[in-house]
Nucleic acid binder design. Structure first.
Lengths: 248, 248
DNA sequence: GATAGGTTGTCACCTCATTGTCATTTTTGA
DNA sequence: TCAAAAATGACAATGAGGTGACAACCTATC
């Protein structure tokens, strides 16, 4: 059950969105500086990941083996085992787990070398939390079945929620983030009648309450973009006195 | 049968809609602060839930065992048994019952830890009643089999209250929101005689009083749409001088 | 049984809440 | 700072359903 809850819309900026109840997964942070450990933990917890921290390379290796994290954030400068070594070892254990390297801006980073070691991406210190999490999330996304796109089809429409792209009769249609999120929720609850309140809760978030008119507007936009005849909607139906219903 | 009754019509906007008399289910509130108890009780009663309150962890545990509530709202800071302990215990007793944790904003809440304890969601104080109830309801919804269709059958009729669709002898019948709500209440109280006043209270709401003719009209509509011979109703029966009765 | 008084069935009208739609303002992100 | 997106507000269109009139019906009492 928890697993379902962690399914999240990855195109949504989670920073101001209300927290999903469960962890999105575990991130292993390998970093020797206690202050930086703290920062990193907070950054990822904020983004609803579980975080485990290793202070040196050996601990990192052990934790990696036991926890099998979703991704690794790795400081290059470490005691005992160097970051470079660790990076290589991790890649031999689980080539698919993304590794994001932290490197100080003072270090002359040989990007090519880094990537040859198996790192998937790197961020130079000082970094903005935003950039770091964005890169980590991007790496995780990339790693997740790159060949199996999650496209949803109905009528002559074709929506790829991962890519955030949509096309109708083969022609690309531009949808905004909200429109995607709303449409996604509709596809997940096809055939069911959804009240405006429910939609506001689930799509907009719990602690944000715009006018219900807002919902209507987004519906309008979706209809204009996806319905052949927006005035006579075939898929995004109005249920008078109740709300809306999506029928593929 | 009560279980069926707790299936709320999610297409009805409950926010400003007056209360149906039947409870949607029981919420267990575990909270030691009497003032907060009062607030929480009111919040959920407002949303048509029954509320039982426990002042400490032990009482909470006992009440949970005896009452088997629909969901638990739990303040982390409790005398005797800590909220964390209680949370874990409840989850071992009934893993499916959603637990929503209340935590003061001053506490440094390790969200992940919370969720590992088994909490399904959390709300930080101060919270808006809206957010709390929304989260609780979402948790309850999630816990319920998401794919289980709620169809009700009688005679040659087949009603899906979630989809708000109805069919008689396989042919689709269009019902309005009010008609659905009324029919739902009848199905939930099959074989029982319901006075017009009761129906007005439950279906239309407490603070709304149209003429009694209104009820008759809706009954008429339902008969026309669902009865083979509306003039000789087989299911929506008139009980002269009393009200109406639904027999499947 | 017959009648009276209250109760219910039925219909058409009309009100008004709900929704569609657009223009404008506000917010957000680059 | 600017541009895109989202929220808001206003207004029109729509249709559900409340209202009231009247007929039909039931029950009780004589």
């Amino acid at each position: 059950m928890m697993a379902e809850m962690t399914e999240d819309m990855d195109f949504v900026d989670e920073t101001d969105a209300p927290a999903p109840a469960a962890s999105l997964g575990t991130i292993l942070v390998v970093e020797d500086d206690p202050r930086m450990q703290k920062v990193l933990r907070r950054v990822f917890v904020e983004e609803h990941y579980s975080v485990i921290v290793a202070g040196d390379g050996q601990a990192g290796l052990d934790l990696f083996r036991s926890e099998r994290p979703l991704a690794v954030v790795l400081d290059l400068i470490l005691p005992h085992i160097s970051g470079r070594e660790l990076c290589q070892k991790l890649k031999t254990i689980a080539p698919d787990t993304p590794i994001i390297v932290l490197s100080a801006i003072t270090e002359v980073v040989d990007k090519v070398l880094l990537l040859e070691l198996g790192a998937d991406d790197y961020v130079t210190k000082p970094f903005s939390p935003r950039e770091l999490t964005a890169r980590v999330q991007a790496a995780i996304r990339r790693q997740r079945k790159p060949t199996a796109p999650s496209v949803y089809r109905f009528a002559d429409c074709e929506i790829d929620f991962q890519k955030m792209s949509a096309r109708r009769s083969g022609r690309a249609v531009v949808l905004t983030a909200h429109e995607f999120k709303l449409l996604k929720f509709f596809t997940e609850n096809a055939e069911r009648v959804l009240t405006r309140e429910r939609l506001l809760n689930e799509v907009w978030g719990y602690n944000f309450y715009p006018t219900t008119r807002t919902v209507d507007n987004q519906i309008l936009k979706l209809r204009q973009k996806l319905e052949p005849d927006p005035a006579n909607p075939q898929h995004l139906l109005t249920i008078y006195g109740a709300g809306y219903k999506f029928v593929p």
